[in-house]
Amino acid sequence: MKKQLRTSSGREIMIVAGEASGDLHGANLVRAMRARDANLRFCGMGSRELAEAGVTIFSDASRLAVVGVTEVLSHLGDILRARRTLIERMHTHRPDLLILIDYPDFNLWLAATAKKLAIPVLYYISPQVWAWRSGRTRVISRLTDRIAVILPFEKEFYAQRGYVVDFVGHPLLDSVQPELEPGEFLSRHHIDPARKLIGLIPGSRTKEVKALLPAFLDAAGRMAADHPDRYTFLIPRASTIERRILDENGLAAWNHRLDLRIVDSERHAMMAACDAAVASSGTVLLELAILGTPTVAAYRISRHTYLLGKLLIRHLRFFSLVNLIGGRGIIPELLQDAVTPERITEELRQLMDNESKRTATLAGLAEVRQRLGSPGASERTAAIAFELLSQTHQCLNP
């Protein structure tokens, strides 16, 4: 007996995101798909953003957001329960499409189940196979029907290995917009327009803050030592970081010695207003690049993890996406023992006071911004999703 495809009002999409950035990008994709068909139903795994977009959450991704072998082992029960829940759902309520967002160690298990059940799979935001475990390209390509990548060099990376993927542009281009004009931001925070603004951005995880903020604040003190009235230092506080964490890692000691401002909202306006910044490695570096803010990238992890990383990742010249996309050292990178107050101070002064260095950096950031594509990643990915849905309809109703 021929299986009948559910009507538009009955079509269900399962979407799975395991990290905060994937939760955000997934939510934007859900909205883009609902703009085309308001009757679609979504379920799966995610956190606040996907839930607010109307996705029925069977597994809370915030319980699985762990880093490091020890943390993974301590949360293994949650991870296995989440995987079992989603696989059982695929068996009992077969979705018309499975959308996976990054998070490869978890998502590839779901892709394998979907393959057995003939459920089409769209992998949105490919895992970083270009950094390590490149052999995964074969597995990902075998278990998925379409792959949507967001970094320009990923399309060529897959092509060199014989696989065709879709470059949809970076979704940050849709979300990274200053909430206020620079003048409005300065006025709201009572900052003298004559001051130079430097962003100190230690990250959104407690471990990052502990590893980086003391050095960032010490560098700020060095910057302001000779010109105490020249600089204002801005620290965006992520919702995942309590104020006491900042205080315990240097803020309380420096708070009355520097013009320091903690910014709890309007973070993109803050970044855009900065003359320069020092930031932890990660997505924030791309945000700063999109906003055109010259930045010093800093990365410091445990020595054990660093040595293991060196063994696994030997071929990359840079660790920041800004420089990887640009193909050269557009922004300075400080890694491990190089993350010192002295080096941070030296690099910040170069970005602010060396006119030729600053001009070259700004030009490089503009180039990276251009290579990221054009806004509309969610809409382009939604179009791919509907192509898969259409193909499924044709197969089931020839």
Rank of each mutant, 00 (worst) to 15 (best):
K2W: 07
S8F: 13
E12R: 14
I13P: 00
A17W: 03
G22N: 05
D23C: 01
D23R: 08
L24E: 13
A27M: 05
A35N: 13
L40W: 00
E52R: 15
V55L: 11
V66L: 11
G68Q: 03
G77N: 14
I79S: 06
R81G: 06
A82W: 12
D96S: 00
L100W: 06
Y103L: 10
F106W: 05
L110R: 11
T113F: 10
P120I: 01
Y123S: 11
P127N: 06
W132D: 02
R133I: 06
T137R: 02
I140E: 08
I140N: 04
R142T: 13
T144H: 06
I147R: 13
V149A: 00
P152F: 01
F153S: 03
G169V: 10
D174K: 11
S175H: 09
S187N: 14
S187F: 07
H190A: 14
I191Y: 05
P193V: 06
K210P: 04
A224Y: 04
D229R: 12
R230I: 12
Y231A: 04
T232Y: 05
R237C: 07
A238K: 10
A238G: 02
I245K: 10
D247I: 05
N249K: 02
L251Q: 09
L260M: 11
S265T: 15
R267C: 12
R267Q: 14
A269E: 00
M270C: 11
M271G: 02
A276M: 02
S281Y: 04
L286I: 08
Y306P: 10
G309I: 02
G309V: 02
F318D: 02
L321N: 00
L324I: 14
I330H: 02
L335P: 07
Q336P: 05
I344T: 09
D353M: 08
T361K: 05
V368C: 00
R369L: 03
R371Y: 09
E379R: 12
T381H: 09
A383E: 15
H393V: 13
L396H: 13
